[in-house]
């Protein structure tokens, strides 16, 4: 592990004119000065300072889980735990009746039939508006309205970037690790999205969830909270190990500090061995 250089606000990062300044810094004369307390990062000639705690900023292509906060003209506003609410345009969602359907007038008036305030959605960041707000889309069938489960919130900086953010645990439970710190844990849907009727895609009805599935969902949620409390970066590997390590205890015992410590320590140790 390389040495980390910490800097604090107003500290000079470098005075070397060949460097370009990036996020977390500002220019004063020939100095590149830090604007935050964080770690200096350098990629080629670009120097940035990354604060250890910050709100979710996001990048194009990020998978995020969000909550609809507002229904507006031809679009929805979505709380994605960022500096501004994200925007989901009507033209960026799949509407029942086929992906290529033309948007008609009645669609706009019936926007609440698709998403209404409070609904949970998984989407992808497709672009950024000039003011920094994220523009989302749910065009692929793996995105869209969420059901059959519950939300867990963790600090966004703990969610590691991976190839995939959709995972299955214990065969029955699906976990969507939103890069914005919102994580959806639910029963794996019996039908794949392609097999669903068009109106099922936006239905507000849960499938039947067995007690066993419910327990598993709760266990996964508690593991996520445990990892979050110990500030352990989260990906599928460490979560799966935490889940396994927790199996010899009752689900609700995972709320106790000693159990959190034991389970997460084991998970981290096992994950480290895999990574070597």
């Amino acid at each position: 592990m390389s040495e980390q250089t910490f800097v604090t606000p107003a500290e000079v990062v470098t005075s070397d004119p060949s460097f370009m300044r990036g996020h977390g810094t500002y220019q004063e004369g020939k100095d590149i000065v830090s604007a935050v307390a964080g770690v200096v990062e350098q990629v080629n000639k670009l120097v940035t300072v990354r604060p250890l705690r910050t709100r979710y900023g996001g990048e194009i292509g990020d998978v995020v889980v969000g909550r609809i906060t507002e229904v507006a003209q031809k679009r929805w506003k979505v709380d994605v735990n960022a500096r501004q609410d994200g925007v989901l345009l009507l033209s960026s969602v799949n509407l029942p009746g086929g992906v290529q359907r033309r948007k008609s007038e009645s669609d706009e008036l019936q926007m609440r039939k698709f998403f209404t305030e409070g609904d949970m959605v998984v989407a992808e960041a497709q672009a950024f508006f000039q003011d920094g707000a994220m523009s989302l889309h749910t065009r692929s069938l793996k995105y869209g309205k969420l059901r059959n489960g519950t939300l867990v919130v963790v600090p966004p900086s703990l969610v590691l970037r991976s190839r995939s953010h959709f995972h299955t645990i214990a065969n029955s439970v699906e976990v969507i690790l939103g890069l914005n710190g919102y994580i959806w844990v639910c029963k794996r849907a019996t039908k794949a999205p392609e097999e669903m009727d068009p109106d099922e895609l936006y239905a507000n009805v849960n499938e039947d969830i067995s007690n066993q599935e419910r327990e598993t969902i709760a266990r996964v949620c508690n593991c996520l909270q445990a990892l979050s409390k110990r500030l352990i970066p989260i990906d599928y590997t460490v979560l799966a190990f935490a889940y396994e390590a927790s199996l010899d205890r009752e689900t609700k015992e995972l709320l106790e500090p000693e159990v959190i410590e034991a389970v997460t320590t084991e998970a981290v140790a096992r994950a480290a061995m895999v990574n070597e």
Partner: peptide, 11 residues
Amino acid sequence: LVDAGVPMVDY
């Protein structure tokens, strides 16, 4: 503000 990662010119 520093704890929240809000960018500032100085303390």
